[in-house]
């Protein structure tokens, strides 16, 4: 078997691990094939669901008194004529070549609309995920290493609250404290990235925190329980018998083994954060994907709905693909199992 050298960076030190490249490559290929298949199936489902959804966009746009000829002309213009297969293929073909079609209501290319919103939603989701991980990892590790003690109970109590309290309430509290009282941040709106990276990040900070807190609470609990499971494993006792202190054993042997369930949750959270931040976007008046999809549904702007949903599906499937690769990087047994 051929071996390639792969380097993992961790806590400022370099550690090398040899990964059999054939196994890793085969694993990656298999995952990739499943990614493409998932996308094809998802696109068909989305297309069918939108097809059977009640309401004809053309008659919605023209109102109930429209002439049949005008209606037919508009339907042709919107690309609503023709067989289902041709329209599906045209839609998919357009997506692949970057032509997402034209919005029925705004009469602008869907790609531009989605692109503008994506530049808000994607950084927001990434920032929220980063914050949530930065909070959850130390909290979960701390709680696990002090199981049953006051510190553990404190962290568990806090995460209980974090899970229970809805994020829009956090959002309102953050606005109250940091925007209205302290005036450190603005209460809403997005200045745009052309005002500079810092200004953009500044505008996204409060929404990201509001999104991150409940997610961090869930992630911290998963981290803690996963780590506790690992701490009970035989190899942790072996590590102690070698002369490692409890802390060393936890960091060197516990953490990486505890990561698999945590990675699963992170993957799910990213998908949720990208599409599910509609309430937070509303609270902070952010022009994100969530609001776009909400407005398009109300306006029967089906081409926009279709495209945004497909985009979200794509990002979810892509994220799962990355999580699968991360699994294999963390656990050598998974590479061999496929």
């Amino acid at each position: 078997m051929e071996f390639s050298q792969i380097t993992f960076g961790r806590t400022g030190r370099r550690r090398t691990a040899r990964i059999p490249s054939a196994l890793m490559l085969r694993y990656t290929l298999k995952r990739f094939v499943s990614l493409v298949l998932s996308l094809v199936v998802a696109s068909m489902v989305i297309f069918t669901v939108i097809e059977i959804a009640p309401g004809d966009p053309a008659s919605f746009m023209l109102g109930i008194n429209a002439q049949p000829e005008t209606l037919a002309a508009l339907r042709a213009e919107l690309g609503l004529e023709g067989s289902k297969t041709t329209r599906y293929l045209a839609w998919i073909g357009g997506m692949v070549t970057g032509d997402f079609g034209t919005s029925y209501t705004y009469r602008t290319p869907v790609l531009d609309m989605v692109g503008d919103r994506l530049w808000v939603s994607l950084p927001l989701a990434s920032l929220a995920l980063l914050l949530s991980t930065l909070i959850a990892f130390p909290a979960g590790i701390y709680a696990a290493s002090r199981r049953g003690q006051a510190g553990d109970m404190g962290v568990m109590g806090a995460t209980q609250l974090g899970v229970a309290v809805p994020n829009f309430w956090f959002a309102m509290m953050l606005v109250l404290v940091f925007a209205i009282n302290l005036r450190w941040f603005s209460a809403g709106g997005f200045v745009g990235w052309d005002k500079g990276l810092l200004a953009g990040l500044h505008a996204l900070t409060l929404p990201a925190i509001a999104l991150a807190l409940p997610q961090a609470a869930i992630l911290a609990r998963v981290m803690r329980s996963s780590l506790l499971d690992v701490l009970g494993e035989d190899f942790m006792r072996t590590a102690r018998a070698k002369g490692l202190s409890e802390r060393q054993a936890l960091w060197r042997h516990g953490l990486r083994n505890a990561l698999i369930p945590v990675l699963t949750i992170i993957g799910l959270q990213f998908s949720f954060l990208l599409a599910g931040s509609i309430i937070i976007e509303q609270v902070f008046y952010l022009p994100g994907l969530g609001r776009l999809i909400f407005q398009s549904i109300s306006a029967r702007d089906l081409i926009v709905v279709e495209s945004v949903v497909m985009l979200l599906v794509f990002s979810v499937i892509m994220m799962n693909f990355l999580v699968d690769l991360a699994y294999a990087a963390v656990d050598p047994r998974l590479r061999a199992r496929t």
Binding site: R237, T238, A241, G243, L244, R333
Partner: peptide
């Protein structure tokens, strides 16, 4: 002392090693 002056071997070799 552990690992340096006293070494220990356990019963279950399938789980006594770190799998990763």
């Amino acid at each position: 002392i552990r690992g340096n002056e006293i070494g220990m071997v356990f019963q279950e070799p399938m789980t006594a090693l770190n799998p990763v």
